[in-house]
Design a binder for these strands. Structure first.
Lengths: 203, 203
DNA sequence: ACAAAAGTGTTCCATATACACCCATGT
DNA sequence: ACATGGGTGTATATGGAACACTTTTGT
């Protein structure tokens, strides 16, 4: 029995939640779009395999990474019995990507407009999106999609992209500040019109 | 790479949360206590493997069963690389158990007084308990530990056993009834003193 | 009669929600 | 001056938490 890891890498671009997909170069499903991932090596943990595959196929390092679910239907891979341990990962939009050797054309797709996908990867993405939505208000996942310094409006846009609904600005800010997980900096970002105060995440 | 499933089977006995453990007959860790589980067959899904192992090793069927997490540290099994997909399962105390062929001495242990365990099974149980606690108030896991007809006091004892704290009777009953997931029956249980009304779970 | 568990309401506090205007800046 | 996004407060509704006594039955 063979074991792979697949990673649903999320980011926010243009106010929408996006997922990174690669175009497979090898069989099966060559030419189709799929999640980054690959076989787990004999001497590495599952977490390490997910990190490595993400690095190899997308150039992404040091991201938030969390195990999601293990998919093991007998017929899910035509090569024989392959189960996959799915992960999801979060990066700010600022990271640059580079395609690796097993894959090419790593590209971001908005989660509400995905192409058809290899294997059971569409199901995996659905499962990852649900997890992300659920963890948004009791964990730090919202911050992992932003750079270390961010404005509260940027944070709100992240929440809106994940939840797929618009939030009230005043209520959002009050709730975030009450939770005490952000601290205001003495810096302002003066892009646009009125400068916006920057905040950083604190544990 | 080999793949097993392990199952944390919970029940409530004597107002306390218990876990079923077996005594291993084969190496490695022969003679030690462990979770029921075993290798996934080539043509069965992970869920089916968990169901089968539970049936073979404990005689339990048709229980609530949910995938928990996949544990894959390289050194977790001395036989070589074995990853395990952990499940947890819930049965009412009324089910009878019978030990199977790979295992013997299937026995219930209170979760706050476990013996030392084979492999990383202590960690798996901790993870299962946490999941159970978290799902208690937004899912139906509380009902899966009871027979189809139960009194509200019995349901409260289940919640108290899982959470490890005593709850206020009036608040508990109001909350349960408000959620609308139980319906009162026109039956009363007249064990003890004053008869208690029976309820059943409705999706 | 009494022991034992069943059943039942109200008050208070904290948090969620709905809602609209002024401010600071760049063009 | 004006367009743009930044920033702020209040009133109401809802859900959670604390709290004690009466009822029904078997012995």
């Amino acid at each position: 029995m063979r074991v792979t890891v697949d990673i649903v890498l999320f980011t926010i671009r243009d106010r929408r939640l996006h997922v990174l997909l690669i175009r497979r170069l090898v069989k099966p499903h060559a030419g189709e779009q799929a999640l980054p991932g690959g076989f787990v090596h004999d001497n590495e943990s599952l977490d390490a395999a997910a990190e490595r595959e993400l690095r190899e196929e997308t150039g992404v390092r040091k991201v938030y990474l969390e195990q999601l679910y293990t998919f093991g239907q007998p017929k899910r891979d035509s090569r024989g019995r392959v189960i996959t341990v799915a992960y999801y990962a979060l990066v700010p939009d600022t990271q640059t990507l580079c395609a690796g050797t097993d894959a090419t054309d790593a590209e971001w797709y908005p989660i509400d407009n995905l192409p058809s996908l290899a294997f059971d990867h569409a199901e995996i993405i659905g499962c990852a999106h649900e997890r992300l939505r659920n963890k948004l208000d009791y964990s730090s996942v919202g911050f992992e999609l932003l750079p270390t310094k961010f404005t509260l409006t940027e944070l709100q846009l992240v929440h809106e992209a994940i939840l797929g609904e618009v939030l009230d600005k005043r209520n959002f800010r009050r709730q975030i500040l009450q939770k005490g997980r952000v601290k205001p900096l003495k810096e302002w970002r003066n892009t646009g019109r009125k400068p916006a105060q920057l905040y950083s995440f604190c544990g």
